[in-house]
Amino acid sequence: MAITNTPVTGGSSPTQALLNAVNTRGSTDSSKSVTADQDKFMTLLITQLKNQDPLNPLDNAQVTSQLAQLQTVTGINKLNETIESLKKDYANSASLQATNLINHGVLAAGKNLQVASGKGLFGVELKNAVDTLQIDIKNAAGKVVHTQTLQAVDAGVLPLGWDGKMDDGTTAPDGMYTVAVSGMLGGKTAEGVQPLTFGTVASVSTGAGGTKLNVPAIGQLTMDDIKQVL
């Protein structure tokens, strides 16, 4: 059975009444809430019913359709609120996890190798296993001072250390060096082989850009940048 009602009189047209119904002059915060959206929809629906043409009233299908729209909008807003809550929880968890890494050594993508007291730490990341892995350590002038070859290396992150002994038998002076790596698989150059640089997490920063780990030897890193914690 169709729902009917007599039109509202008193100088206000149906069009104006509808505009008044959806006019949001109240609190901005409340208009963004799920409750405010529900109230807005219900006010609009009731206003439509009050101002409908008695000769051409809204049928039940139209009312049901608008109620379904209300449920859809309400569901979407609740989902958005849930997502925002999960994002905040994730950010708090990431910040706490990052703080626990302060004073810990980490490996991240990079070719720099800091030698101190005749020793240095670095790493290699392999996308696939390789038959042979060649590691070349170069000085500031770009000259290879030490070469090391490893056999049958599995995929993954491989932390390595250098004792500072150069190929000419002397000890490398402290300072910054670089690492170049290459792998062979089945007689062909392997892909997905990259050097990793070592650093110690000094502090953690949080802000609009998310949680950042401050590593003096590398720079600012995200948690996703960390390949391994040592």
Rank of each mutant, 00 (worst) to 15 (best):
N92K: 11
Q134S: 15
T132A: 10
R25H: 14
T35D: 02
L55I: 04
K143C: 06
V106H: 04
V73G: 01
P7V: 09
S13T: 13
P7H: 12
K119Y: 11
V181S: 09
T189F: 14
S65G: 09
S117Q: 08
I137C: 05
T72Y: 05
L49H: 07
G192D: 13
G156D: 09
T64Y: 08
S182I: 12
F198I: 05
L213Y: 00
Q71F: 04
Q134L: 15
T6V: 13
G75I: 00
G75M: 01
A172I: 01
P173M: 08
L150I: 09
Q16I: 11
G187C: 08
L79I: 00
K78T: 04
A68Y: 03
K143R: 14
A109D: 09
V124I: 15
N20Y: 13
T47R: 11
G161R: 09
G75W: 00
N92L: 15
L160V: 07
N92Q: 14
M176G: 13
Y177I: 06
V157D: 11
A91L: 10
G175M: 05
I46F: 13
N23G: 10
H104F: 10
A172M: 02
A208E: 12
T15W: 13
N214Q: 02
N60A: 15
L107H: 03
P159F: 06
K88E: 14
I226T: 01
T82P: 04
N56M: 07
D163E: 03
I83K: 03
A129I: 13
K40V: 06
K119E: 08
G105L: 06
H146P: 05
A21Q: 02
I3G: 09
A141L: 12
